[in-house]
């Protein structure tokens, strides 16, 4: 354990001196954890990637300060908290994103009744699903056809639970947009998906 932190202090000193290889090692060590944290805050793969990227950009810009830093994770989280709060304020919590969040959290607590209703909607939304990117299609079908939980989908597709949910929510939003043009089914779909 002390070996690891010694090694990390050395890495930090190398990074402070401008060693890009050393920074790459740190990046490789922490990028996944940072990304997964960002994903839980943003509920979006793209935003989580942007955040991860932004955090590591800021750290490199201010790399001289790393010479006196003992623990990289502590430093990483200090930089991250600013970036994350800013993102919550600017992109995640504003009213423009309300529909996304609403659907996202609501999808957590589907009742068995709702699940059945979703199944019934299958044929109506089939066309809409075909227009989705392949990975989203897979998530949707695993969830709604095979009845897998997000945990099971995550395992099966080797993605995170948050990603699975995010895909699902975006599927639903895309389906709504798609069906929005379809006047015949609009009422019932909106009722089942977004009541």
């Amino acid at each position: 354990m002390s070996n690891t932190s010694d090694n990390e202090r050395e890495l930090l000193r190398l990074v402070a001196a401008g060693d890009e290889n050393a920074y790459r090692l740190l990046f490789d060590r922490y990028a996944d954890r940072m990304y997964m944290n960002a994903l839980h805050f943003t509920k979006s793969e793209e935003l989580a990637q942007d955040l991860t990227q932004e955090i590591f950009i800021r750290i490199w810009v201010n790399r001289l300060k790393l010479a006196t830093v003992d623990r990289f994770d502590a430093w990483l989280f200090t930089v991250a908290r600013n970036v994350i709060r800013n993102e919550l304020k600017k992109k995640i919590l504003p009213v423009e994103n309300e529909a996304f969040l609403h659907t996202y959290f609501r999808d957590n607590n589907l009742t068995p009744q709702e699940r059945i209703e979703y199944k019934e909607l299958e044929s109506s939304v089939h066309q809409a699903i075909r227009n989705l990117p392949p990975q989203m299609q897979t998530v949707f079908l695993l969830s709604r056809q095979e009845g897998l939980t997000h945990e099971e989908i995550a395992l099966r597709m080797n993605i995170s639970v948050v990603s699975s949910k995010t895909y699902m929510v975006r599927c639903l939003l895309a389906i709504r947009r798609h069906l929005g043009k379809d006047a015949v089914k609009l009422g019932i779909v909106v009722f089942f998906l977004f009541k």
Binding site: Y35, M36, N37, H40, Q49, R81
Partner: peptide, 13 residues
């Protein structure tokens, strides 16, 4: 929260 959460998973990028 960042300090205490160790979510599993990896970045697809």
């Amino acid at each position: 929260i960042l300090h205490h959460s160790h979510p599993a998973g990896h970045m697809p990028a």
